[in-house]
């Protein structure tokens, strides 16, 4: 059970935030928050500013207008990009230990925690390999293990499974949601897949085409962990339908 005072606390908030590039509005105004113990999915058409919203939450980008409130320290945020983004010259273990080493954690402690993180994503035997020796799915798991290694309070995933095949994708989604079953950080992730959003999230924000705004919000009323057959339940089917409809409307369908 999660500490009640921690549950639902805003970890990062976008307060009427807009972003413009070269005078062209790319995002917003948008207002939402991500809460501890909750997974928020951002769904929307290509180029609507989903990834920008994620970078704002991460503190990697500044808004043109509005306010980003982050109640987490820099080192407590983890980002998983669409590509695994591993250092090709380092072993899997060193890649996972990287955030800890950068934070000044001693090597043996960092390695111990990295081994633990690798076990959680089912890759404890891959510690000595280099990224080039991994499959796409394995590399993505390493990337997720790296994000987990530092016990972050805020986890941001930018289309983490987009480059993977359907089977690997589902398996990873199953595994990642099972990771949330313990003490859960605030999670926000961007995806093109409505199925994935409904399967992995508590809350889904549907965005309009650029400049993206939140046009629909859905809650998935089901707890974690979610077994693979959650995809066959009525609640899953109904939520997918609602979100798909909202997405179609946001893209101008009648």
């Amino acid at each position: 059970m999660q500490n009640a005072s921690e549950l639902g606390m805003a970890v990062a908030t976008l307060n009427d935030v807009s972003v413009a590039y070269n005078g062209r509005q790319a995002l917003g105004p948008i207002r939402f928050q991500v809460n501890s113990g909750e997974t928020t999915a951002l769904v929307g058409p290509s180029g609507c500013g989903k990834s920008t919203a994620l970078r704002l939450l991460a503190g990697l980008e500044s808004p043109s207008k509005g306010q980003v409130i982050r109640n987490v320290a820099k080192g407590e945020t983890a980002v998983v990009f669409q590509a695994p983004t591993l250092a090709p010259w380092e072993t899997v273990l060193n890649n996972v230990a990287l955030p800890l080493r950068l934070a000044g954690v001693a090597q043996d402690v960092a390695w111990e925690r990295a081994h633990a993180a690798l076990s959680r994503v089912g890759l404890k035997d891959a510690a000595g390999l280099k990224p080039a020796q991994l499959s796409g799915g394995m590399a993505m798991r390493v990337s997720i293990a790296r994000a987990l290694s530092m016990s972050p309070k805020l986890v941001l995933l930018d289309e983490p499974f987009a480059a993977l095949d359907e089977i690997t994708r589902r398996k990873l989604a199953d595994d990642v949601t099972s990771l949330w079953s313990g003490a859960r950080p605030a999670v926000a992730f961007v995806t093109h897949s409505v199925d994935e959003a409904v399967f992995m999230a508590d809350r889904i924000l549907v965005m309009s085409p650029a400049p993206g705004q939140v046009v629909y919000e859905a809650s998935v009323l089901a707890g974690f962990p979610r077994p693979p057959h959650f995809r066959t339940t009525e609640i899953f089917r109904r939520t997918v339908e609602q979100v798909s409809d909202a997405l179609a409307r946001s893209m101008g369908a009648p």
């Binding site: 991460a58 503190g59 990697l60 820099k74 080192g75 945020t77 983890a78 980002v79 990009f81 590509a83 983004t85 250092a87 010259w89 380092e90 990287l98 955030p99 080493r101 950068l102 934070a103």
Partner: peptide, 29 residues
């Protein structure tokens, strides 16, 4: 160096020396 890796180094608050020795120099090989 991969811009996303650079971003990760930003995120993890890497010092300039760490960024150089752990990212840029090895990436340059």
């Amino acid at each position: 160096a991969d811009p996303d890796l650079e971003r990760l180094f930003d995120l993890y608050g890497a010092t300039p020396v760490q960024r150089l020795m752990r990212l840029r120099v090895p990436a340059s090989a």
